[in-house]
């Protein structure tokens, strides 16, 4: 049984300010994520043929429009930082050994950073021309070489 002496006391003064920003971030990002994720699921999972319609061409269709690129990358950053910060809270609650706690938190933020970079690159460097069928539909004007 873990006994927390003073439940609302921060780990240290220096951390207290960070905690407050983290706490606020969870709330602001939460509001934005609600709209973004419900919208994402409505379009990709509910509308039209739903999950049956998802394939490479579907993604190519969406990412041909910069609006959906910005939409997806915004969602990616907000959700990964929100989720990682939430996981950090949970790790801080349950990890009993200090070294374990610190290592888990490092791992979480490294994974978060790596996936943010990966997802952002994937979205903005997306190339429909790697698909033969897309090359034919789009023609030489779009798919050079």
């Amino acid at each position: 049984m873990v006994t927390i002496e003073t439940p609302r006391s921060p780990r240290s003064r220096k951390h207290a300010k960070w905690e407050k920003w983290g706490w606020l971030y969870m709330r602001y990002s939460g509001v934005l994520l609600l709209g973004l994720i419900f919208g994402h699921l409505f379009i990709n999972l509910y509308s039209g043929e739903g999950i049956k319609a998802i394939d490479f061409a579907f993604v190519a269709g969406k990412w041909a429009d910069p609006f959906w690129q910005v939409y997806d990358v915004t969602m990616l950053w907000l959700a990964l930082i929100h989720g990682t910060n939430g996981m950090r809270t949970i790790v801080n609650d349950y990890a009993e050994r200090e070294t374990v706690r610190v290592r888990l938190n490092y791992t979480l933020w490294i994974v978060c950073g790596a996936l943010i970079i990966l997802g952002t690159l994937v979205c903005f460097t997306f190339d429909p021309c790697i698909d033969q069928a897309m090359r034919e539909t789009l023609g030489p004007a779009v798919c050079k070489g």
Binding site: F56, V59, A79, L80, G83, M87, L118, L121, I130, M134
Partner: peptide
């Protein structure tokens, strides 16, 4: 929250395949 987090890890990786091959 934890369940969605783990889904999102997988989902970012599966989406990344659009950059590998159709």
């Amino acid at each position: 929250g934890v369940a969605i987090f783990f889904f999102l890890l997988v989902h970012t990786l599966d989406t990344a395949l659009v950059r590998v091959s159709p």
